[in-house]
């Protein structure tokens, strides 16, 4: 469980987080959304103790981040940064991904199996012996992800995982994230990608100017056009479409393209049966 209690954070005299209170239960799936500079990255850096609260506290499985080292916290909370270049440093993709497990002292055979599994899952197997710096931005991003997931942390925090990923990779990433979540891990993503959120259906925490603006289910939050725009997001296309057809009986909280398809189909069918 991740508990954020009355968290304030300032640096250089600027308060960037104001009184944040969040409880994230084990196995929950959360999306933290909001404008550039809202404080999203600052907030998640508190989850593995990279930053400590100026006031208030953050508890990871009951332990205050003030009393734990980053090393011990990062076995529980795996944090994948937005910019992969901030975390990659090894000569080959394999070594990069194996690094944390070697550090934890796992036997080499376990490491090899586990690393190969994760490389396979993230479509990186053919790059095992390549330097991470030879890869494209999207591929480096997946290497960074692999290097965190390999040691199987209980809580996974991903900062903008979809940036630079093409549609197919995004699909795979979505399936993978959802699978990790259904296997019981807590998944927290920071993202601007409203369409990705609609497909993943997490609970949404909307952050704006360092405070929590709203919290609720993805469809509740993302169908509130005014709220969404206040956080510098653009509402999902399907939601906007349904909203502009509200007078014909469509539900503006329908955000998913397949649900919208069914609703329109049903409507057209009922029209036909009326005329018959």
């Amino acid at each position: 469980m991740i508990e954020v209690k009355g968290l304030y954070f300032s640096y250089d005299g600027n308060e960037v987080l104001h009184n944040i209170n969040i409880t994230i239960h084990d196995g929950e799936f959360i999306a933290i959304m909001g404008e550039n500079g809202a404080g999203k990255t600052t907030l998640i850096k508190h989850f593995n103790g990279l930053l400590k609260p100026s006031k208030g506290e953050v508890l990871i499985d009951g332990v205050s981040t003030r009393e734990a080292t980053v090393a011990s916290l990062s076995r529980k909370v795996g944090l994948v940064f937005q910019n992969p270049d901030h975390q990659l440093f090894s000569e080959t993709v394999f070594q990069e991904v194996a690094f944390s497990m070697r550090n934890y002292g796992y036997p080499e055979e376990t490491i090899r199996r586990r690393v190969n599994f994760i490389l396979e899952t993230l479509d990186l197997r053919s790059y095992a012996e390549t330097s991470p710096f030879m890869l494209s931005g999207g591929e480096r991003k997946r290497v960074a992800l692999a290097s965190i997931l390999v040691s199987d942390p209980k809580h996974i925090v991903l900062d903008e995982p979809t940036i630079g990923q093409d549609h197919q990779q995004k699909e795979k990433l979505k399936n993978f994230i959802v699978q990790m979540n259904t296997q019981g891990r807590t998944v927290i993503i920071v993202t601007h990608d409203v369409e990705f959120v609609v497909e993943c259906r997490p609970k949404v925490i909307l952050l704006s100017k360092g405070s929590i603006l709203a919290e609720g289910s993805y469809d509740e939050i993302l169908s509130d056009e005014d709220l969404v725009r206040r956080a510098s997001l653009v509402p999902p296309q399907i939601g906007l479409l349904m909203s502009s057809l509200r007078d014909l009986g469509f539900n503006p909280a329908t955000l998913d393209v397949y649900q919208a398809k069914s609703a329109i189909e049903k409507r057209l069918l009922s029209n036909v049966s009326k005329t018959l």
Partner: peptide, 10 residues
Amino acid sequence: EPTSFLDPLS
């Protein structure tokens, strides 16, 4: 890809 790092409104 000039907008990858930007929030949707920007």
